[in-house]
Amino acid sequence: MVNVIWGCFIVIGVCFSFFTGQMESLNNQMLEGAGAGINLILEMMPLLVLWTGVMKIAEDAGILQKFSKLVLPVLHKLFPSLHRDDKALGYIASNIAANALGLGSAATPFGLKAMEELQKKNPKKDTATEAMVTFLILNTGGVTIIPTTVLALRMSHVSANPSEIIITSILATFCSSFFGLLLDYLLRRKKQR
């Protein structure tokens, strides 16, 4: 999928520039394009590195477990098909907590573990269970408390207040997840009838 997008961007970009007669600027643009990518990385790197450092302290202090415990009661309500002590719920909680704290690389293994646990009790191995679908909708909502890359990008473009979008992002995420879960719930109920 990413493959297709990348290819299309280049093919469309080049062909259309030819078509509109911007051939000469295209040459410079291509050479500048790679440089712009490097600049972006260099500008974002300091904040990213700083933040992974701070979050490592949080991780070592056990904040992940604390957070997981906080979200667990909500998860019981969202996953009625899972037993209260189901191992999968623990992994799901850790996944959501790691995502919220911006520990993306820690989140994925928990998520994959959760899917594995859910699959063990799946009667039809090629078909997604209700819990799997709900979990992924929750996961793709992508609740992140501090969106580091966006902040770094806004800083590099000299924003007067880079972090002003944190609150709007959290609210928007909340809306998106809420409507996703609501539709999921309604579809599940419809199927049960």
Partner: peptide, 23 residues
Amino acid sequence: STLQGCTDTTIYVLALYFGSIKV
């Protein structure tokens, strides 16, 4: 900026997670 922060790569995540258990 808000758009970038408010959602994740849905299609990529679904492919990764469902792919890992062959659903």
